[in-house]
Design a protein around this nucleic acid. Structure first.
Lengths: 233, 233
DNA sequence: CGACAGCGTGACAATTATATGACATTAGTG
DNA sequence: CACTAATGTCATATAATTGTCACGCTGTCG
């Protein structure tokens, strides 16, 4: 499982560092920003999985940044946890109404912070979950993690499952091994492109019915394509 | 939509009355209790939808009552919001660890209180299970706490019982260890995910007939799934 | 027709995930 | 207070998965 990246936005470096240490121990990658402008740039650039956002900051406030994020389609669903001092608790309502996913009052315990981050990330994942997909005898259910062809259950490893999931939502289009690595293995992985071949092979095998394979076509020199149609190319 | 009932537990009548007024204005039905014993009785008797629980009370403390509620399957899922004085804030962590859904520091604004109650009730919206469940030889009675397979009574601990209860109302769906922790151990719990494995094991054992296990499938890299069907995965 | 690059295939060892049994601690019970 | 059951964590055992490789096949192009 790829580690998640968390962006910490706070004008006090002591807070940033404290949180960074706690999160890194817990296995998260951390980014820091000390104002809303830097934060926004980092969000666009580094695409963190979650943002910890301080309420009170010089210049643009955390609330204002939150509103901007929510207005932009690309960042509308980015999980944001607001950090507030005790005295500002009244404002939390406003924060939650503006689209924060959660909030925490300072001071907070690292354990609680981790728990909330986990929880927020998980909810986010759930949002991206899809409906069962059915095509040409193939049934793919991301909820139950069930894959079957003509009611016959198929068995495959987690990577093949993700690969199939990717293909199903990107049909009829050729993807290079690089692109597939990016999408299925997530982010910047240093890995042999040929590994994709092997997993394609495994997926093909898993999807095959009595030795007859379908769905995945090789496009020589370019990559692979998933297609319902039996294309003679 | 039927109005929700909120039980307010606090030894100071001034607080109880203030909160009662605020909640009734907002359209909630209110019950009051001035100590843990009365509160417990009211919870059993009136089955409120949510409890506002003061931390510091004479005799049994709010925390102790909370723990008792969480231990009993019947009240394990009842939303509880802890009320604490500012000076006790350190204890909140402990409160959250014991299964409170949220907490509020006195003095609090009615607005915020309403918002949190709404939020907690919304989260709760899930299951309120009363009917016995029967499937494929397995009989699960949430009222008598009886579980049997083909009329043969099974024995399991409270945690396994809750786990089974959760699975029965969430069949054919994969849940991560984290999610299972949240649902079965109650919200804000910080515990080793592997504990789930152990309890899965215990439940499997309890549900097994002459060494043959069913119902619970492992989904590698994802979590566990409860399914009536015997799926070759 | 070579020669070569791209791809398929099976095997394999390292890695990772899960299962299991044991144990110390704590909660429940009378 | 003593006793029993239940719980959570570990250490270890087992199993599945993963990435890489070597080798063989196939189409391509001069």
């Amino acid at each position: 499982m790829a580690e998640s990246t968390v962006l910490i936005v706070d004008d006090e470096s002591a807070i940033r560092d404290m949180v960074t240490v706690a999160l890194e121990v817990a296995g998260y990658r951390c980014l820091q920003a000390e104002n809303a402008r830097d934060a926004h740039a980092l969000i666009i650039d580094e695409k963190p999985d979650l943002v910890l956002l301080d309420w009170m900051m010089p210049e643009t406030s955390g609330l204002e940044l939150l509103r901007r994020l929510r207005r932009d389609e690309l960042t509308a669903k980015l999980p944001v946890i607001m950090l507030t001092a005790k005295a500002e608790e009244d404002n939390m309502i406003q924060g939650l109404n503006s689209g924060a996913d959660d909030y925490m009052s300072k001071p907070f315990s690292p354990r609680e912070l981790i728990a909330r981050i986990k929880s927020a990330l998980r909810r986010q994942k759930a949002v991206n979950q899809e409906e069962p997909i059915q095509l040409d005898g193939l049934l793919f259910d991301p909820i139950s993690h069930h894959v079957s062809i003509h009611d016959k259950a198929l068995s495959m490893g987690p990577t093949e499952f993700r690969l199939l999931s990717f293909f199903l939502s990107h049909q009829d289009r050729v993807y290079s091994r690089d692109q597939i690595l990016d999408h299925v293995w997530g982010g910047n992985v240093y890995m042999d492109e040929r590994t994709v071949d092997v997993h394609i092979r495994r997926l093909r095998k898993a999807l095959s019915i009595d030795g007859h394979e379908r769905f995945i076509q090789t496009v020589r020199g370019a990559g692979y394509r998933f297609s319902q149609k039996l294309v003679a190319d």
